[in-house]
Write a protein that binds this DNA or RNA. Structure first.
Lengths: 250, 250
DNA sequence: CTTAGTTCGTCTCAAGTTGAGTAGTACTCG
DNA sequence: CGAGTACTACTCAACTTGAGACGAACTAAG
């Protein structure tokens, strides 16, 4: 093959359709014990009126910065604001099928964001119509965003197993019970409270005690719970594995 | 860098589209029990004479197809040939820093390929200078390809743990010992033969027996080994974890 | 042919991890 | 106050892991 330079020297832009690069963000949070994704309502064609993942064109910036910018714009939270600092953002996958956008070829770099409960985006946002939607109600999205969302959810579920990412969904100080609720919401199944407790405390660097407790018990009763903050581990050893599901294996 | 500077001085970005999309491929194989990556020698500026990952511009095709095409071109193996059918190819990550290519903005979608031992690419290849290099000798690559390779290696090491991907590195029929050698080469450490044997056979769907054995014992002695082929599992349950390394955790 | 050295496949055992259950206690709500 | 709930700590049996040992099958060298 020709290498990039010889290829570029003979490259004639008119021979190829123009091409654009965008970022799309799968932003996840937990509201009312349900895993929710940030969606925007499309005002223009194509897919007018349908919901889509927030996203936009990449400017003179890194891809990571573009994703951060889009997220800040859509949620209406200013960069530098404390809430956004705690958001975990990572690249998910790139989608570039020639026909994924009917107008022109668009290569979209999808990002995955994990956030603690954020304010409703409509207040003060650039985007008039952005809101959090429970993931099981997020269907029939524009473009190939159903696929993007599915990939994002699978990534999120897998990452809870072997990284301390669940701590990105809760406040700076949290109880083991709140952390367990994150796992239950993302995985969609309840966990054995006692075993979860034992496991979390036994993984080095996952959580560290603050020495304090909640000021009152749970809403429906129960004692005050000890408070923890995220530890310094980047990987969980041993991992917290999802309950085994044979059908996931093949 | 004199050459690169003068090259850049005569380069007029306005003649070209403001942004291009390429695919780069981290193709891995095992030769002589060493993990090797496919590299090409660059003939032109920038980075002339340096080694780089094979790659090229995306045409009117999916990103996956572009990666397949590049790999076939660089290895000189025709698509449809049996060898290439067995190659596992997956998207790795996208690199799009504005300054990663000095000529213009290039967004590169990196792919990761796992192949059984392939012929030397020089025979019959389009690329005059492509060859397999042991990964620990693959340094000082062009562009940001050192980072891309490092990301690819980490992904490969992690994927061996929880997917049956190691079977993509061996022939259609293989022995447990050959499979163990794959793990040892990729992870860079020896594994306990007995425990590995037990583990592989205990994971449902990882390997299935062919009922046959090798026609002779190992080169340095030992009995004939039973032959297996890849099973139908897509995930390994339970996983084959790397020997724990505390320093990987934080 | 004999011997040394290698590998395959199997087994054993102690240590650790898991899932499921139990229980005491401290809370909230009505 | 009583009922219900949640936090935390436990127990126990089943399973998984890592390390070592072993016999048999084989190759290569003497």
């Amino acid at each position: 093959m020709q290498d990039q330079d010889s290829y570029l020297a003979g490259y004639n832009p008119s021979k190829y359709p123009s091409l654009a690069v965008t970022v799309d963000v799968v932003a996840l949070t937990i509201r009312d014990a349900k895993l929710c994704v940030l969606l925007v309502e499309r005002g223009a064609q194509p897919f007018a009126g349908q919901r889509a993942l927030p996203g936009g064109f990449v400017k003179e910036e890194t891809l990571d910065d573009a994703a951060k910018r889009e997220l800040a714009e859509e949620t209406g939270v200013k960069p530098g604001h404390g809430d956004l600092e705690r958001v975990h953002l990572e690249q998910l996958k790139t989608y570039g099928n020639p026909d994924r956008d009917p107008r022109m070829r668009i290569v979209s770099v999808a990002y995955l964001a994990f956030a603690p409960s954020l304010p409703d985006p409509t207040a003060g946002s650039d985007a008039a119509l952005a809101y959090w939607v429970p993931v099981d109600e997020a269907k029939d999205l524009a473009f190939d965003h159903d696929d993007v969302l599915a990939d994002g959810l699978e990534r999120a579920r897998a990452k809870l197993e072997y990284t301390p990412l669940a701590t990105a969904f809760v406040n700076e100080e949290f109880t083991i019970g709140e952390l367990r609720q994150v796992y239950a919401s993302v995985w969609g199944e309840d966990l054995h409270a006692g075993n979860f407790h034992r496991k979390v405390l036994s993984v080095p660097g996952f959580v560290e005690s603050t020495g304090t407790t909640t000021s009152r018990g749970g809403e429906r009763g129960g004692p005050k719970a000890k408070l923890y903050r995220a530890g310094d581990a980047k990987l969980l050893h041993p991992a917290l594995l999802r309950p085994t599901r044979e059908d996931r294996v093949r």
